[in-house]
């Protein structure tokens, strides 16, 4: 212990923060509408904490998905102040609390209830690119080895948590009911450039179709939206280049 007398640390004080949430209860509401809630929060609190407080203390009907609460399960993607983010990774101190913080469901997928959308179309696109290891020949008797350089080649895509922040920030995805969307292309990229995989040709054929990579208009919304810092637009460009330069 040092002998320096320390001033007592003041207990942190919660500040009232107002949230403007786009609500839609399908059994009651004919149209979505905005509602405001004010809750006391600390600067280090997450938006998810605010939603849990609103649900627990003010209105139990507020509906949203969440699971792990620390940015790895990908359940609580939502549009916060107009930007796709994970509610569990967005801190109050990083938002302007002088005006209401808007929270709404991610766009481009059918609205189910409040902040919950139907994720089926998103996962259908994901499945369509065959996001699993495809190999030919005999099954080896030991691990499929890979050099550190080969592993690094597709590392970025392995960070994906399938939260849909990228896909539902894409203006082409919003207006086009067919486009696979950024997340599915990232998943394809992760295997196309994996030296152990031999399904690249099949995946490239799928992504060369009219719903595939050529719909991308390089707006970079997806890269900005990714809570995992994946260079999503670059991953899409890599697939385009592979299509152009393949033998």
């Amino acid at each position: 212990m040092t002998a320096i007398a320390e001033a007592p640390i003041a207990a942190p004080v919660a500040t009232d923060v107002t949230f403007r949430v786009r609500r839609f209860l399908p059994e009651i509401d004919s149209e979505p509408h905005w509602e405001e809630y004010t809750v006391g929060l600390f600067p280090t609190d997450r938006v998810l904490t605010a939603l849990e407080k609103i649900k627990g203390e003010i209105d139990g009907t507020l509906s949203f998905r969440r699971s792990c609460g620390h940015g790895i399960c990908g359940s609580d993607a939502m549009r916060i102040n107009g930007r796709n983010r994970l509610a569990c990774k967005t801190l109050v101190k990083d938002l302007d609390i002088s005006k209401p913080i808007t929270v709404e469901a991610i766009k481009g997928l059918p609205l189910e209830k409040d902040l919950i959308v139907d994720m089926d179309p998103f996962f259908e696109a994901y499945r369509a690119v065959m996001p699993f290891l495809i190999t030919d020949g005999h099954e080896p008797s030991r691990e499929r080895l890979q050099s550190a350089e080969d592993r690094a080649r597709f590392d970025d895509g392995t960070k994906c948590i399938l939260c849909a922040c990228c896909t539902t920030s894409c203006p082409v995805y919003w207006t086009d009911g067919q486009y696979f969307g950024p997340a599915a292309i990232v998943a394809a990229n992760r295997f196309i450039f994996d030296s152990r995989d031999s399904g690249a040709e099949q995946r490239l054929e799928i992504l060369n179709e009219k719903e595939g990579v050529w719909r991308c208009r390089t707006t970079f919304n997806c890269t900005d939206a990714c809570p995992r810092g994946i260079e999503v637009t670059k991953a899409i460009q890599e697939v385009k280049r592979a299509l152009i330069f393949r033998r």
Binding site: E27, G60, T61, E112, K113
Partner: peptide, 11 residues
């Protein structure tokens, strides 16, 4: 609970 609905009732 407050949510009496039958659809996606997280409450």
């Amino acid at each position: 609970i407050q949510d009496k609905g039958v659809r996606y009732n997280t409450d």
